[in-house]
Computed example of a mutant assay.
Amino acid sequence: MKITRRSLIASASASAILSPAALRAQDSEPTVHEVEMLNRDPDTGDIMVFRPAVIKVSPGDTVRFVATDRGHNSEAFDDAVPEGVEAWKGNINEEFEITLDTEGAYGYHCTPHLSAGMVGIILVGDNVDNLDALRDVRVRGRASARWEDYIARAEEMMAETAS
């Protein structure tokens, strides 16, 4: 096949026309977000933490809980997921992934370190009507103060997104 100036221009024009659509398709592909499970946060010095503790993702994205330090897992609070969504429970010392399709707020913890305050929140999409319900989740010890702090952070994130 002979390449002519005309075929080159036609090809370039077709590429230019398709580029915005291709870019939109790339932007809408699900993303994998990593949350580390740590004994100590190297930045803050806090012990028994998920990092980041509060994240916002898009519907269809995946959250990967990385067993950076041993002895941790991720388990959703039964009463801290959107209605109709089944809570998850990862195994201790294992990386765990969850794809979140339903918009809302998801509260979770590390099973053996809940009382040490190892809790976190995932915000999915812009419709997190159940965020207030997370205030009713019963947590004790260090988790109580962190939980309230993380709910406040989640509310700030949603307010920033809305403006």
Rank of each mutant, 00 (worst) to 15 (best):
I121V: 13
A16H: 04
E94I: 06
H109Q: 14
N93W: 05
L134S: 05
E75A: 13
S144F: 07
V49C: 09
S144Y: 03
A145H: 06
G71C: 11
M118C: 15
L114E: 13
T68C: 00
A133H: 05
A133W: 13
V57M: 11
I47K: 13
R140L: 11
A105N: 09
E75W: 10
V66M: 06
E83G: 12
M48C: 09
V66R: 05
A87T: 02
R5T: 08
S19Y: 11
T111L: 08
D149F: 13
M37L: 05
I92E: 13
A145I: 08
G84S: 05
A22E: 14
S74Y: 12
I92L: 11
F65H: 04
S58T: 15
R146H: 10
V57S: 03
T99I: 08
E29Y: 09
D41L: 10
G90H: 03
V63Y: 00
M118L: 15
P30D: 10
N130P: 07
D149Y: 10
E86N: 12
D132G: 14
G90F: 02
R146D: 08
D126M: 06
R142K: 13
T62Y: 10
I122S: 00
K89P: 00
T4S: 14
T62G: 07
S28Q: 08
F96S: 03
C110G: 14
R64K: 10
V66K: 04
P112Y: 15
C110W: 15
D46W: 13
R64N: 05
R142V: 12
A154K: 00
L23D: 14
G90N: 01
R140H: 06
I122A: 00
R24L: 04
A53H: 06
L38K: 05
I17Q: 10
D132F: 04
E29P: 03
G90E: 01
K89A: 12
M1K: 04
D101M: 07
P42R: 08
R138H: 10
R51I: 09
A10W: 07
T102A: 00
V137I: 11
P82G: 01
G90V: 02
D43Y: 09
R153T: 15
R5E: 12
N93D: 14
A116P: 08
M157C: 02
K2I: 15
A80P: 09
P112H: 11
G120N: 02
E29D: 09
I17D: 09
V81L: 09
